[in-house]
Amino acid sequence: MIAPIPVSLLVNGEQVDAAVQPRLNLADFLRDNLKLTGTHIGCEHGVCGACTVRIDGEIVRSCLTLAVQAHGTAIETIEGLSDSGEIADLQAAFRERNALQCGYCTPGMLITAQDLLQQTAMPDRRAIREHLSGNYCRCTGYQAIVDAVEATARARAERSA
Protein backbone atom coordinates (compact mmCIF):
# COMPACT_ATOMS: atom_id res chain seq x y z
CA MET A 1 0.00 0.00 0.00
CA ILE A 2 1.30 3.40 -0.92
CA ALA A 3 1.23 5.94 1.89
CA PRO A 4 -1.16 8.87 1.43
CA ILE A 5 0.40 12.28 0.86
CA PRO A 6 -0.75 15.41 2.68
CA VAL A 7 -2.16 18.23 0.55
CA SER A 8 -3.35 21.72 1.46
CA LEU A 9 -5.24 23.85 -0.99
CA LEU A 10 -7.98 26.40 -1.30
CA VAL A 11 -11.20 25.21 -2.88
CA ASN A 12 -13.69 27.94 -3.72
CA GLY A 13 -12.03 30.10 -1.09
CA GLU A 14 -12.11 27.50 1.69
CA GLN A 15 -8.98 25.91 3.12
CA VAL A 16 -8.88 22.14 2.58
CA ASP A 17 -6.35 19.82 4.21
CA ALA A 18 -6.36 16.16 3.29
CA ALA A 19 -4.19 13.10 2.77
CA VAL A 20 -4.58 11.48 -0.63
CA GLN A 21 -3.29 8.57 -2.67
CA PRO A 22 -0.97 9.79 -5.47
CA ARG A 23 -3.17 8.12 -8.10
CA LEU A 24 -6.24 10.15 -7.08
CA ASN A 25 -6.97 12.74 -9.75
CA LEU A 26 -8.28 16.18 -8.90
CA ALA A 27 -11.70 15.48 -10.44
CA ASP A 28 -12.26 12.49 -8.17
CA PHE A 29 -10.89 14.39 -5.19
CA LEU A 30 -13.40 17.21 -5.75
CA ARG A 31 -16.31 14.86 -6.39
CA ASP A 32 -15.71 12.03 -3.92
CA ASN A 33 -13.80 13.65 -1.08
CA LEU A 34 -15.35 17.13 -1.15
CA LYS A 35 -18.75 16.18 -2.66
CA LEU A 36 -18.43 18.95 -5.25
CA THR A 37 -20.16 16.96 -7.98
CA GLY A 38 -20.60 19.85 -10.41
CA THR A 39 -17.23 18.88 -11.89
CA HIS A 40 -18.18 16.11 -14.30
CA ILE A 41 -16.14 13.20 -15.58
CA GLY A 42 -16.64 12.12 -19.16
CA CYS A 43 -13.57 10.54 -20.71
CA GLU A 44 -10.75 10.67 -18.13
CA HIS A 45 -8.18 11.32 -20.82
CA GLY A 46 -8.45 15.00 -21.54
CA VAL A 47 -10.68 14.89 -24.60
CA CYS A 48 -14.17 15.96 -23.48
CA GLY A 49 -13.67 18.99 -21.21
CA ALA A 50 -16.47 18.07 -18.76
CA CYS A 51 -13.99 18.13 -15.87
CA THR A 52 -12.67 21.67 -16.50
CA VAL A 53 -11.87 23.67 -13.33
CA ARG A 54 -9.70 26.68 -12.57
CA ILE A 55 -6.32 26.38 -10.86
CA ASP A 56 -4.86 29.71 -9.77
CA GLY A 57 -7.22 31.45 -12.18
CA GLU A 58 -6.42 29.29 -15.23
CA ILE A 59 -8.62 26.61 -16.74
CA VAL A 60 -7.29 23.04 -16.66
CA ARG A 61 -8.47 19.45 -17.02
CA SER A 62 -9.02 18.08 -13.52
CA CYS A 63 -8.91 14.49 -14.86
CA LEU A 64 -5.32 15.08 -16.04
CA THR A 65 -4.23 16.74 -12.80
CA LEU A 66 -3.35 14.75 -9.72
CA ALA A 67 -4.76 15.91 -6.40
CA VAL A 68 -1.17 15.97 -5.09
CA GLN A 69 -0.24 18.42 -7.87
CA ALA A 70 -2.89 20.82 -6.59
CA HIS A 71 -1.03 21.23 -3.29
CA GLY A 72 -0.61 24.92 -2.50
CA THR A 73 -2.97 26.10 -5.26
CA ALA A 74 -6.37 27.80 -5.33
CA ILE A 75 -9.05 25.76 -7.10
CA GLU A 76 -12.35 27.13 -8.34
CA THR A 77 -15.11 24.79 -9.44
CA ILE A 78 -18.46 25.46 -11.06
CA GLU A 79 -19.98 25.63 -7.55
CA GLY A 80 -17.63 28.52 -6.71
CA LEU A 81 -18.26 30.42 -9.94
CA SER A 82 -21.98 29.88 -9.55
CA ASP A 83 -22.29 30.84 -5.87
CA SER A 84 -20.24 34.02 -6.29
CA GLY A 85 -22.55 35.23 -9.07
CA GLU A 86 -19.59 35.65 -11.38
CA ILE A 87 -21.29 33.84 -14.26
CA ALA A 88 -24.96 34.46 -13.41
CA ASP A 89 -25.51 36.29 -16.72
CA LEU A 90 -23.79 33.54 -18.72
CA GLN A 91 -25.89 30.89 -16.98
CA ALA A 92 -29.07 32.88 -17.73
CA ALA A 93 -28.06 33.19 -21.39
CA PHE A 94 -27.48 29.41 -21.59
CA ARG A 95 -30.95 28.82 -20.15
CA GLU A 96 -32.68 31.36 -22.40
CA ARG A 97 -31.11 30.03 -25.57
CA ASN A 98 -31.38 26.33 -24.85
CA ALA A 99 -27.62 26.03 -24.78
CA LEU A 100 -27.97 22.90 -22.65
CA GLN A 101 -30.14 19.84 -22.74
CA CYS A 102 -28.79 17.01 -20.59
CA GLY A 103 -26.44 19.40 -18.81
CA TYR A 104 -23.49 17.06 -18.64
CA CYS A 105 -21.06 19.33 -20.50
CA THR A 106 -22.49 22.56 -19.07
CA PRO A 107 -20.15 23.15 -16.09
CA GLY A 108 -17.11 22.74 -18.35
CA MET A 109 -18.67 24.86 -21.09
CA LEU A 110 -19.48 27.67 -18.65
CA ILE A 111 -16.01 27.74 -17.10
CA THR A 112 -14.32 27.65 -20.52
CA ALA A 113 -16.61 30.33 -21.96
CA GLN A 114 -16.02 32.57 -18.95
CA ASP A 115 -12.27 32.10 -19.46
CA LEU A 116 -12.61 33.40 -23.03
CA LEU A 117 -14.78 36.35 -21.97
CA GLN A 118 -12.21 37.35 -19.37
CA GLN A 119 -9.46 37.37 -22.01
CA THR A 120 -11.39 38.87 -24.92
CA ALA A 121 -14.20 41.37 -24.45
CA MET A 122 -15.90 40.83 -27.82
CA PRO A 123 -14.84 37.50 -29.33
CA ASP A 124 -16.29 36.68 -32.76
CA ARG A 125 -18.03 33.37 -33.39
CA ARG A 126 -14.85 31.80 -34.75
CA ALA A 127 -12.93 32.72 -31.60
CA ILE A 128 -15.76 31.35 -29.45
CA ARG A 129 -15.75 28.06 -31.37
CA GLU A 130 -11.98 27.83 -31.13
CA HIS A 131 -11.90 28.43 -27.38
CA LEU A 132 -14.64 25.85 -26.82
CA SER A 133 -13.09 23.36 -29.26
CA GLY A 134 -11.90 21.13 -26.42
CA ASN A 135 -15.37 20.79 -24.88
CA TYR A 136 -17.75 18.18 -26.24
CA CYS A 137 -21.52 18.60 -26.26
CA ARG A 138 -23.58 15.69 -27.59
CA CYS A 139 -27.01 17.42 -27.42
CA THR A 140 -27.11 20.98 -28.68
CA GLY A 141 -25.07 20.94 -31.88
CA TYR A 142 -23.09 23.86 -30.39
CA GLN A 143 -24.90 26.70 -32.23
CA ALA A 144 -26.99 27.65 -29.19
CA ILE A 145 -23.89 27.57 -26.99
CA VAL A 146 -22.04 29.93 -29.33
CA ASP A 147 -25.17 32.14 -29.40
CA ALA A 148 -25.29 32.29 -25.59
CA VAL A 149 -21.61 33.19 -25.26
CA GLU A 150 -21.89 35.82 -27.98
CA ALA A 151 -25.00 37.34 -26.36
CA THR A 152 -23.29 37.47 -22.97
CA ALA A 153 -20.24 39.19 -24.45
CA ARG A 154 -22.47 41.79 -26.08
CA ALA A 155 -24.51 42.37 -22.92
CA ARG A 156 -21.37 42.78 -20.82
CA ALA A 157 -19.90 45.23 -23.34
CA GLU A 158 -23.10 47.30 -23.26
CA ARG A 159 -23.16 47.31 -19.47
CA SER A 160 -19.59 48.51 -19.19
CA ALA A 161 -20.01 51.15 -21.92
Partner: peptide, 9 residues
Protein backbone atom coordinates in the same frame (compact mmCIF):
# COMPACT_ATOMS: atom_id res chain seq x y z
CA UNK B 1 -1.74 22.32 -30.18
CA UNK B 2 -4.74 20.96 -28.28
CA UNK B 3 -7.11 23.35 -26.50
CA UNK B 4 -6.72 26.23 -24.04
CA UNK B 5 -7.12 24.15 -20.86
CA UNK B 6 -4.45 21.71 -22.09
CA UNK B 7 -2.13 24.51 -23.25
CA UNK B 8 -2.24 25.93 -19.71
CA UNK B 9 -0.41 22.85 -18.42
Amino acid sequence: VAHPAIRNR
